[in-house]
Design a protein around this nucleic acid. Structure first.
Lengths: 227, 227
DNA sequence: AAATCAGGTCACCAGGTCAA
DNA sequence: TTGACCTGGTGACCTGATTT
């Protein structure tokens, strides 16, 4: 977990590793978030968290929707209406109420909701190429459970692709069009409560501007945006 | 068909998949459901009230209309009047006596009666763009009979457009203004009998709130974000 | 006036590109 | 191969028109 101060909320889940394959994805329904975020870190610590984390729940997974609406700070703000909270910078960074969303696969800054999960341009492109060409990657040289992070995401393609699937990336989970207001709203609320929880439990004190939502692992929550 | 519980009534028609081209559709103008619904779920439950309360009631007076009035829960409820029975959420979901109507093209939740058939915002927009710009889509990469469902409706434009036409979408089928009482009544009656049938035959027991009326394929009802 | 839909808008994303 | 950018859609909402 990171919750670092900078204002990043991270999907907190745990570790990652590879194990859980896919499974997920149900899409269909959506539900959106599982239930809630309950778990958010409250206590941090724990470090542990299970392994993979999957928490299902807990996490902020949901945030999703939220994320994108508004604009971003940086560049342009074209927005007009936009809901409160969400923004996307023109650079592609997705923020929600000042919080930067992270790629569920590698933890880098997410550029949007791709193939059903918040992902960075790199993982988006990697996943696209993988499914388009139905590439069979070389077997992992280690234990097939390499941790995938921004810095080392290109070291093991097999594990990266596996991670993509485990966090729920799927062609079936694609969402087009703008994010429904209700969804955004819902996310915002969830996010806020998650933040609150975090703040209380952790550092009480400092948060700066942006918060990062990471996630990691979390396995897949299916994606759905649902609204 | 599925009739799944959730309260969805599906247009039950045939199979869909690819083969049957048109077939259905009668619509032309109004009528909306083909003939039958036979299978609709059943009773709703009562309890329900669905979300909003719409009472189902019986009145026939309104059916079609019925569908759209209610509103959804979430956000706003703009509604005001509404006849008993039909409601539309403000989100655009069309409901009839607690039943959610589905898009005849892809099975997603319908936002209304567009170009002669109940359709979702996505298929409505897709069809509009197709005819306005007279777009010639790229040839289907498969057999030109892709099944069109919410999850994969964006995979093959040619087949999606074909499906739109086969279920009866047409610029000439446009209906403006409020739904005539007689029509609503007619719909209500059909719907009720369909429901009755379903209830008897199928699950008797559980239904939740809304019923979905799908149509074709059904298959997919899945996800939807519903509301 | 109220109900409903065609169209327009524009937030957002899949995919294609191409320098690195 | 990767991933930052760009382009062509997609679809949630909104507005104006139409009908009862």
């Amino acid at each position: 977990m990171e919750v670092n101060a900078g204002g990043v909320i991270a999907y907190i889940s745990s570790s990652s590793s590879a194990s859980s394959p896919a499974s997920c994805h149900s899409e269909g329904s959506e539900n959106s978030f599982q239930s809630s975020f309950s778990s958010v870190p409250s206590s941090p610590n724990s470090s542990n968290s299970d392994t993979n984390g999957n928490p299902k729940n807990g996490d902020l997974s949901n945030i999703e929707g939220i994320l994108k609406n508004d604009q971003i700070d940086c560049s342009i703000k074209t927005s007009k209406s936009s809901a409160p909270g969400m923004t996307k910078s023109h650079s592609g960074v997705t923020k929600f109420s000042g919080m930067v969303l992270l790629c569920k696969v590698c933890g880098d800054v997410a550029s949007g909701f791709h193939y059903g999960v918040h992902a960075c341009e790199g993982c988006k492109g990697f996943f696209r190429r993988s499914i388009q060409q139905n590439i069979q990657y070389k077997k992992c040289l280690k234990n097939e459970n390499c941790s995938i992070m921004r810095m080392n995401r290109n070291r093991c393609q097999q594990c990266r692709f596996k991670k993509c699937l485990s966090v729920g990336m799927s062609r079936d989970a694609v969402r087009f069009g703008r994010i429904p207001k209700r969804k955004k709203q819902r996310m915002l609320i969830e996010m806020q409560s998650a933040m609150k929880t975090m703040m209380n439990s952790q550092f009480s004190g400092h948060l700066q501007n942006d918060t990062l939502v990471e996630h990691h692992e979390q396995t897949a929550l299916p994606a759905q945006e649902q609204l």
